[in-house]
Design a protein around this nucleic acid. Sequence first.
DNA 1: GTCTATAGCTGGATAGAC
DNA 2: GTCTATCCAGCTATAGAC
Lengths: 209, 209
Amino acid sequence: MNLLKRISFKDQAFQQREGAILDAATRILTRRGFDLMTMDDVATEVGVSKPSLYKHFKSKEELAGECMIRLLDAASEHLSSLPDTMPAIDRMRSLLAWALHLRLQGGLPFLPATSPHVRDMLVKNLGYTMRALKLNSALSKILSEAQKAGQIRKDLPDAVILFSFYSRTCDPAVEFLRLYSKLSNAEIVENMLAAYFSGLTATNAKPTL
Amino acid sequence: MNLLKRISFKDQAFQQREGAILDAATRILTRRGFDLMTMDDVATEVGVSKPSLYKHFKSKEELAGECMIRLLDAASEHLSSLPDTMPAIDRMRSLLAWALHLRLQGGLPFLPATSPHVRDMLVKNLGYTMRALKLNSALSKILSEAQKAGQIRKDLPDAVILFSFYSRTCDPAVEFLRLYSKLSNAEIVENMLAAYFSGLTATNAKPTL
DNA sequence: GTCTATAGCTGGATAGAC
DNA sequence: GTCTATCCAGCTATAGAC
């Protein structure tokens, strides 16, 4: 029993360190992207040596993949946590707002979009692909609910709406606004949501709202 | 005079080769991004040796900078080419459509958005910055015209609209749609414009249009 | 001005001691 | 499992012959 306990302790420490590595890698991926992230960077930021990283993740690609998997899981979890009574469009808003806040805190990288190399890397990662499909099917369902309820226009293909949705989570405009405007993080999120959902053209129908 | 002529010929060939290098580099930047583009790639694609590249551009960063400068000039030129009678919002549409078509043909990289490294590189490039400011001021003017004419909503900060506009030119959704949907290039552009300008929410005001 | 060849460096991954 | 020290590939940039 003592033995088991000790092993369990060790495991816990191991798990905790793994979490720290993933946190650091996620931050660095957000700041610098996959190509510019070095394993030295990650090791330094976590406070371990480079070979130790390789005890946890057998390559840089696997490390990046695990970061993205954890994020997809968090996104699915966020969706699940929303009350069933919430209108579909508000669930979409809520997920996008969650992602944008995460991004503004430096915790959501760009990855899938970046380059063919990175995209291929993720597509080949079975765990990533499975979770991406799961999230996508959950979102498709919400989208069709929103359309049935008359909250989202029906004249755009689903793919346009969904891919745009994903792309908004890594919209460079967010970064530019953070750097070059005086808007607070909350205002940036609010404006991005407004621009995405309502568009830019003046609504000459609604009078002053 | 013969001498001058010969020099002039040589210069022409030199200029032409420079254009070919820029074309190739722009394509590769679009496909692979700055970090993954190697000078060997460029040399091979153009059909010259690597040291020759360095006779034209003193570094990889300068080469990328010149690619972007040429694109900014082309964008400004496109704006200038539009008839004065065209409504402001249609000029914005036209510029975005031009950029998206260029992107779909593999001729418009991602760069400014990508990473702090790349962004810094471009900001330090005086020629790039000057042209970016020039284009930005032209677009700001068009935007305020469109707002005065009641074509664009006035409740969003200018920065939100303009940065979103630039970001739409390198929207990953375009790439995803090209890869994973069956839409033609023209349809992709049309849908992206529709989503950007009109938004996603159903316009319960307009009946069936 | 163009090439071949190479310097010099960086970064992913690992061997081997503890 | 963790470290120090190191290997090796690939890249930017240049020296030097023609």
